[in-house]
């Protein structure tokens, strides 16, 4: 078939373009919320209950640092009412994702962009001039603050305030959900602290520097990592150093995320006779970690068993 005048397609495209978009919430009163990771998505769900429809960008099996957003993520963000993220520089792909979606109110510092790091006491804020010679240093401080369950109080308060702001008629409903969550959180924090009191002060070795907030909560000491510098894979020289370090400092366990190879950690652990424990970084990453509380139950039990 020969097209006589192929230019006809462009007026058609132009009309298609400027047809009004269907509003994100047309015919549906629930708020569409996109969170960058599953732990944030679960917190939003705990506060928003039935009034929110939450999706997470990065599935739990991915390393949040290196996730590559897909076209479907762009579509989900372009349709959402609120974008919940870790802020800082944990999700380096976040700004390009928001720009691809093109919805201005979701951009960083926009009224529908909820940066959960606001108000959180950050650890390891670089005080020296930054250089990549020091590895993949985080500019604003260590961004893995969601690993301390006590920070959930601040995050939930922020989620509550934002939901009440954008959906005032359901403010009391959100407040009630948040109260229930925080009450349970206090009970669980007490329980977790009690459970872990016997190993407070012990030293552990971690694969990556994503454990600092969790260790701070449990009172554990972390001085050494399998990565010689953040983001730099273990080297034979560094592993030899760690082997001696673990012996001298009576380290009892090596902890690591599920998405790194356990090969090097297990090699050292076997030589010095300690355990290697995998910790979750995202809700739903391991079986039985489907919500915030079971996520921390899993991690705390794992460390507890490793240290014993």
């Amino acid at each position: 078939m020969k097209i006589k005048n192929p230019l006809f397609i462009f007026p058609f495209l132009f009309v298609c373009f400027f047809l009004p978009s269907r509003p994100a919430d047309a015919g549906n009163k629930v708020l569409k919320i996109v969170a960058t990771q599953t732990l944030f998505a679960d917190l939003v769900r705990q506060v928003g209950g039935d009034m929110v429809d939450v999706t997470a960008v990065a599935a739990p099996k991915f390393n949040i640092h290196f996730y590559q957003p897909k076209p479907s993520d762009v579509r989900n963000v372009s349709r959402c009412d609120l974008y919940v993220n870790a802020g800082l520089d944990l999700e380096a792909w976040s700004d390009p994702l928001l720009e691809a979606a093109g919805k201005r109110e979701l951009f960083r510092h926009g009224p529908r962009n909820l940066d959960l790091s606001s108000g959180v006491r950050l650890l390891k804020i670089p005080q020296e001039p930054l250089s990549r010679a020091a590895g993949d240093v985080h500019v604003f401080g260590n961004p893995h603050y969601q690993m301390n369950p006590q920070n959930a109080r601040i995050m939930v308060e922020q989620i509550l305030a934002k939901l009440q702001e954008i959906d005032a008629p359901n403010a009391a409903y959100y407040k009630n959900n948040a109260r229930h969550f925080l009450t349970r959180l206090e009970e669980k924090i007490g329980e977790w602290k009690k459970h872990c009191a016997h190993f407070a002060g012990e030293e552990i070795v971690s694969y990556h520097d994503d454990i600092v907030y969790f260790a701070d909560f449990l009172g554990l000491k972390v001085e050494q990592y399998l990565e010689p510098k953040p983001g730099i894979p273990p080297t034979p020289k560094h592993l030899a150093f760690l082997e001696n370090y673990i012996k001298e400092h009576t380290v009892k366990v090596i902890v690591m995320p599920t998405y790194y190879s356990r090969k090097e950690a297990e090699k050292i652990a076997k030589k010095v006779g300690i355990k290697v424990v995998s910790l979750c970084q995202a809700v739903g990453e391991m079986p039985g970690t489907g919500d915030f509380f079971s996520f921390f139950d899993y991690n705390i039990n794992a460390v507890s068993q490793g240290v014993q």
């Binding site: 922020q158 509550l160 305030a161 407040k175 948040a178 925080l182 009450t183 206090e186």
Partner: peptide, 9 residues
């Protein structure tokens, strides 16, 4: 602990 404030931290 029991009743979160309306304004975020």
């Amino acid at each position: 602990l029991t009743g979160p404030s309306v304004t975020a931290a």
